[in-house]
Amino acid sequence: MIEVKDLVRQFKSGDRTIKPVNGVSFELGKGTLASIVGKSGSGKSTLLSLLGALDKPTSGDVIVDGVSLAALPDTKLTEYRRRDIGFVFQQFNLIPNLSAVDNVMLPMEFAGVRKAARSARAKELLEQVQLDPEKHGRRINRLSGGEQQRVAIARALANEPKLILADEPTGNLDEQTGEHIIALLSSLSRDHNTTILVVTHDRSLANKADRRFRLQQGRLSEEASRQRVAAPAS
């Protein structure tokens, strides 16, 4: 259970004070696929950074399974990101000189999982995201954009996080590949009972989420929810 309470993040820009996130509150249950839409600069990425403990709020709090992030020191926040959060970025942000398997193994290595176990799980996750087994050992820069995003999703799932934060996961992909990725995220949230929050400006992708939010000038509003429609993850 993710609970966001009156979250505010403000920056100083010269004499002006900017509030990309201004009093955001919402709750997400386990296994929910949620989307946030909004124009560029509306604060979507900033909100995601706050939820993922990459940034600290000016005020307000994020509570994950009863634990307040505001009260945690940096070392605990690192641990939170390692165990409870999975990130999927628009530009994938994989380590270029490592193979697909090695990239997926990274978060498990940081979590202290033994080598044999993390290798087996990495391969299993890559199969789940339907990456051709022949490409498991390939370097990232020899994979296509869609394949790289699949590896990124597998990496996000590595430590079985409570929350996956996907920032424009289809932004760098063609329409068809984007559809596949969204379908994949949808099935994963269902199969793994993982909460997934997708930030996108693509309305058609956002509509596939269980819950849809709109962020405007730092304020979040929920749009009508929809019944989950199962989609093939390919």
Binding site: R81, I95, P107, F110
Partner: peptide, 16 residues
Amino acid sequence: RREIGVLKAIGAPNRT
């Protein structure tokens, strides 16, 4: 720097 940021984002401790 970007790679280090990514490693930190996915939970790499500073000492690692």
